[in-house]
Design a protein around this nucleic acid. Structure first.
Lengths: 137, 137
DNA sequence: ATTACATATGTAATATTATAACACTTAGAG
DNA sequence: CTCTAAGTGTTATAATATTACATATGTAAT
């Protein structure tokens, strides 16, 4: 028989708490704060901050979500698990956050890093902008 | 007579609290946390967190210091008041932080931003590294 | 199946980071 | 001199995050 049955299940299966936190972030699509997540998932059985933070930590570690440091919030990764390098735009007026998918930009940054002989293990880029709808109004 | 005497003094003179907080950050050279600053300056008359946060907010606004979001810390600006664009390296092992002065890198980022037609008002770049002394050990 | 181990869970307490509200003071422009 | 914007001092409280510890669960090897 093939050896496929021997591969670890861990990489595929999330625990219940990790699952419900990930689902909430997935469905929301926007950055959420830990205590908002806690409130939202009380009915699913989440009772304490620690349960939320533990799930969030694990999901960050797995690259499934990112933490946006400047707003203490977490957002689903929409780059199919980027290698923990992150780049966001944050609207200075309304706070709306978008993950930057622009490959030219991120490749450019990676090249710059290489050219400058910085041995970067990962990076987090936060670009502050005025988003389209805020610019109009 | 010339109009030079009408220019505001505000842009030059810091208040006492702003001054002592700035001096501490200047002398330290490394990132400090708000409550550490508070403890350090108790003897100078700082009594409450708010006094520290107000001074820090103002100094950030003036571009004299930067906040490093991912470690909730503040560091003196060593680029003679950069236009609120910031770039740091953070050692993943020992936590040591350095502001990146590399003009090629920051110009490169600015160019990338322009090329991608992102209308950035400012940015904060956090590069995680393994610093020299941590790499050796 | 049973043990061993790493990982996750549940819970309470507490630490850390940051802001709200309010009364008062000071510096600088007119 | 007076008005105003900015800063101060203080108390209380909000928001964010972790420590400690006992228990439970999933997986791999026996």
């Amino acid at each position: 028989m093939s050896s496929t049955h021997t591969h670890s299940k861990k990489s595929q299966s999330l625990t219940k708490n990790q699952r419900i936190v990930l689902d909430l972030l997935q469905n929301s699509g926007e950055p959420l704060k830990a205590y908002f997540i806690l409130d939202s998932l009380k009915k699913e059985g989440l009772n304490s901050p620690l349960q939320v933070y533990r799930a969030l930590d694990k999901l960050v570690e797995l690259g499934k979500i990112h933490k946006i440091e400047s707003i203490n919030s977490f957002i689903i990764c929409n780059n199919s698990n980027c290698a923990s390098n992150t780049a966001f735009t944050i609207c200075e007026r309304c706070g709306k956050v978008k993950e930057i998918k622009n490959k030219y930009l991120t490749d450019g940054v990676s090249d710059l890093v290489k050219d400058n002989q910085l041995e970067i293990t990962r990076y987090n880029l936060e670009f502050y902008v005025l988003c389209k709808s805020c610019k109009i109004n």
